[in-house]
Amino acid sequence: MFSTRILAVVAAALLAAGCASSQGAESGQVTLTLGDQANGLQTLLKAAGTLDGAPYQVKWAEFQGAAPLFQAMQSGSVDTGTAADLPTLAAISGKLPIKLVAALRSGGAGTVILVRDESPVHTVADLKGKTVVVSSARGSIAEYLLATALQQAGLKYSDVTVQFVLPTAAQAAFNSGQTQIWATFDPYGSIGVASGGRVLVDGQDGRVSGIGFISAAQSSLDNPAKKAAIADFLTRLAKAEDWASSHQDQYAAIYAKTNGVAAPIAAKVVAHGSTRLGPVSPDVVSKVQAVSDLMHQIGSLPVDVKVASVADSTVYQGS
């Protein structure tokens, strides 16, 4: 059950908005359209059941990657998004009017550079002069892993040729052997390993920040009823993350069935996933600012985003 204080805030905001909200259902309720990638959040929340009884309507908008998700937010058709730090920064750098309202943390193992098992590439240094396919677009978390891995190996970003390809197309090319080197993220990374891929390097040990964001459209936050509903949604998401951490086997079984993937792949995706939801704290801001600084330095981000200026701590303070 959720605190009566949170439900009271949502109810009061809904009452204040009344029937004037064009977003509401006939009953006057707000409708939140939640942006998702590869059914990640939707599967989690349905498995945990923490959205049950929410005092607002929920619609899901599913995308292959962050780039099309943020395009939908730009059009005003999606209220919230979920993405790793760099694609979120890329969207903000492109002047998308969103705010960072909560932070997801993981160990980084779900972001990988894969090579075909028969590939002669065995170290990051072997990537020099090679073509690397990166999913899904410039400014993806997979591109950040590539940049940091090259830097740690003493190479420059310009030492490789980068091609940006959406995950499903990249996966087909990798599985057929047309693509030999692929930087990607779960669930595509775990599926790639099961299809003859080898992990060259992953995002652990600080190669990625391990931080992702739930972002909200500024227009949605400007609507008091929607802002209150987003705050309630984040509280429910935090409880779902807690549930998943303590029910990994159950969650993996549901993930496999819902998404049509083999049980071993589902188990890896769940193990690699985020472990908790928290506020956009000063520590989060500091770590993600380093991401923005590096990617602006190599030319991937046209603007060095000042992360603190796009964080909104009034929506979620933690549970």
Results as ranks from 00 to 15, higher is better:
Q178W: 08
I98T: 06
S22D: 13
P279E: 10
A252Q: 00
T82F: 15
A238S: 06
L96E: 10
G35H: 03
S209H: 05
Y251V: 11
S309K: 07
Y316I: 04
A102K: 01
L146K: 08
L150G: 15
G28L: 06
V280K: 08
A125M: 13
G28Y: 08
L301K: 04
Q151D: 15
L69S: 01
D242C: 06
Y157M: 12
A84D: 09
P302C: 06
A231V: 10
L15T: 09
S190Y: 13
A217K: 11
A240Y: 02
K95R: 10
V201M: 09
S140I: 01
W60T: 07
A11T: 15
A67R: 14
G197D: 00
E143T: 05
A8G: 11
T33W: 02
Q37Y: 13
V134Q: 14
Y144T: 05
V132N: 00
G196C: 02
T50H: 11
D283R: 13
K227S: 08
Y56K: 05
F164I: 04
Q289Y: 08
V310F: 09
I211K: 03
Q248M: 14
V307M: 10
D249L: 06
G203E: 00
R236S: 09
P87M: 07
N39T: 10
F233C: 06
A16G: 09
I230V: 14
F213N: 01
A170E: 01
A252C: 08
Q178C: 06
S176F: 08
S319P: 09
A91Q: 00
T111Q: 10
A183I: 04
F213Q: 04
A225K: 00
Q171E: 09
D205P: 00
V284G: 05
S3V: 00
D85C: 07
Q250S: 15
F70D: 07
T314R: 13
G110E: 02
A54R: 05
S209C: 04
A91D: 02
P282M: 14
L34N: 14
T33E: 04
G177Y: 04
K227T: 00
D117K: 05
L15R: 11
K130I: 14
I254G: 03
S209Y: 01
I113A: 06
S292F: 07
S93M: 14
V208E: 01
A66V: 05
G212R: 01
A47M: 06
Q64H: 07
A262I: 03
P68L: 05
Q218F: 04
T33N: 02
V280Q: 14
I214C: 07
S209L: 04
F233N: 03
L200G: 01
F63T: 05
I6F: 12
R198T: 01
D126I: 08
Q71M: 09
T4L: 07
T148Q: 13
A290P: 09
N259L: 12
V134T: 14
G212E: 02
K287M: 11
G65C: 04
V160H: 02
E118M: 14
S245H: 11
A142N: 00
G177Q: 06
A12F: 12
H122R: 15
N175R: 15
I191Q: 15
Y316W: 11
